[in-house]
Amino acid sequence: MPTILLLGAGSDMAIAIARRFAAAQYDIQLAGRQVAALQPLQQDLRIRYGITATVHHFDATAYDTHVAFYGELPVKPDITLCAFGYLGDQEKAQQDWQEAARILQANFTGAVSILNVVANDYETRKAGMIIGISSVAGERGRQSNYIYGSAKAGFTAYLSGLRNRLFRSGVHVMSVQPGFVNTQMTQHLNLPPLLTAQPELVAGAVFKAVRSRKNVLYVKWPWKYIMLIIKLIPEFIFKKLKL
């Protein structure tokens, strides 16, 4: 059976993705900072789907543990999906470097650190797929969340470079731009229902996109066009907007 590794497995999107892939009889590796909190999900996946699910300690910002983390996995995953992230507080991050650093690390440098390791392994094995959950926030910086946005922009650029590099080795890299998703991260916000996806919708879209080996996945189609328009606004106008 194929195996998928979920980094940041406690995230609402990762939970839905775990169930979707387990339903298709994938074995699941759940990796996150809080091992105890992942155990109920591990039990659930075993009981509902009869698959093998394991739990692994993983901290995206503990860079020097990443080689050992990957080396110690009982089975090398066929798919590695990066779901961890941190929205943070933009205003706080403007004042407080700790907050800014946390945002940059949880969304960008942590991902680079672990995916470098995974990519090298997949490249030598000439097999595997890497999926990164980035964000439309990375497509153009806006005053309301450009620190998070710039970290995601870095991640998006990293994923596209990686896709380019690994293409020749037959390793596929997919970037996911979910748009708004109703999760823990956004539950304090009032999101527009029509543009907001449920985690299960994201999971279904990711599962389908794995089969068709999509490069860039927009979960709700309007987002592709919204971002197209946002990117087309000339900078001299854009800088005056309250976004």
């Binding site: 939970i15 909190a37 109703n182 823990q184 304090h188 916000l189 009032n190």
Partner: peptide, 27 residues
């Protein structure tokens, strides 16, 4: 998130702030 909520009888319907968590410590 602010939501319009009602139970099965659709009466009464109110606006409620809804929270949801997947982990016991968060609850």
């Amino acid at each position: 998130m602010q939501k319009r909520l009602a139970n099965w009888g659709n009466y009464p319907a109110i606006t409620s702030e809804e929270s949801a968590y997947s982990q016991e410590e968060q609850l």
